[in-house]
């Protein structure tokens, strides 16, 4: 690599580079360790953790779409206890930056996950999942109602001094309203966007492609929507750190999100197609900075000329 300074910061959290693994696409940070070591990334956002293990949704859970895919995994996860005991020690030993994605069906569930994690070293922050489109209760309800969201964020805020991110739903009727509610509740940063609700149909079987009928759309198909939402929230709340995600496949996509106002990004679906995608993206980002004489990646944040 050249002399480009890839470091960035999301609020008070300093990162060695702006590329994080998105929740639900990188397991618990150790699943692809030979192909993409978690410590080489800006950070790892874990699969959404609930107080107890969840079996998730019935099959089929995924469907391929034009330039993307739908998923309805239903937040299958091993539970916070197993994560802290079985996964966290190695993540800690490797020096990975770990953001725990927190999921619950009630405010109490969110608090239980955070309280368990507070007992552990090596967790650098939390990302509240209030935007999963694939569960029958909880999740997205909080993300769609600014009053509920503000209360939930506040109670989580009171439970931790660590960085607290809220992952916003693109399906919410009032994006700026929910963004403001999360910040008013005490969020340090906002991550956006989660997947967009969609569906796929098998015309021969005349049935939905997913057992749950609806799923979350991800991949390059949603990048323009994500970029627009990051830009809108940045314009409405310029002082609030943003973590951008949605369809990032290349280093230039990262630059696009940074210019729109994100301080860091997450890469998700690209990892399914190319397990080393995040490392390739970092190389491309470095190359972009080199070629444009950009000495510090953080100089790109919000630098869009309009």
């Amino acid at each position: 690599m050249s002399g480009v300074d890839l470091t960035t910061a999301v609020g008070a959290l300093e990162l060695s580079n702006p590329v994080l693994a998105a929740s639900g696409t990188f397991g618990y940070g150790l699943d692809l360790v030979d192909l993409c070591p978690p410590e080489s990334l800006g950070g790892v956002v874990t699969k959404g953790l609930s107080p107890r293990p969840r079996a998730g949704a019935p099959m089929p859970r995924i469907a391929e779409t034009a330039s993307g895919m739908l998923n309805a995994i239903g937040l299958e996860n091993i539970g916070v206890e197993a994560f802290c005991r079985e996964k966290l020690p190695e993540l800690r030993a490797r020096g990975a930056v770990v953001i725990v994605n927190v999921f619950g069906e009630s405010p109490g569930d969110y608090l239980r996950v955070i309280e368990r994690c507070e007992a552990e070293e090596g967790i650098h922050g939390y990302e509240l999942n209030v935007s999963c489109p694939n569960v029958s209760s909880g999740g997205m309800e909080f993300g769609h109602d600014p009053i509920l969201l503000q209360a939930l964020t506040r109670s989580c805020r009171e439970a931790t001094a660590r960085p607290l991110w809220v992952k916003l739903s693109p399906n919410a009727p009032d994006l700026a309203g929910t963004a403001r509610a999360a910040v008013d509740g005490g969020a340090d940063a906002l991550a956006l966007i989660n997947t967009i609700r969609g569906m796929a149909i098998d015309p021969w079987a005349r049935r939905p492609m997913l057992a749950r009928t609806f799923g979350g759309l991800s991949g390059p198909a949603i990048l323009p929507v994500a970029l627009r939402m990051v830009f809108e929230v940045h314009r409405a709340l310029p002082e609030v750190p943003l973590v951008g995600l949605g369809g990032i496949e290349t280093g230039l996509d990262v630059v696009r999100f940074l210019l729109a106002g994100a301080s860091a990004v997450q890469v998700g679906t690209a990892t399914f197609r190319r397990p080393r995608a995040m490392l390739e993206i970092l190389g491309e980002l470095d190359d972009y900075c080199d070629r444009t004489g950009t000495e510090r990646v953080r100089d790109l944040v919000g630098a869009l000329e309009v």
């Binding site: 995924i62 399914f272 197609r273």
Partner: peptide, 23 residues
């Protein structure tokens, strides 16, 4: 054989149910 997005164990798309209720 099942639909797979990643083939590496992270997308959780290709699961099959087990007798104990897991995958």
């Amino acid at each position: 054989e099942e639909r797979m997005a990643c083939g590496l164990g992270v997308c959780l798309g290709c699961v099959v149910p087990t007798p104990d209720g897991g995958h």
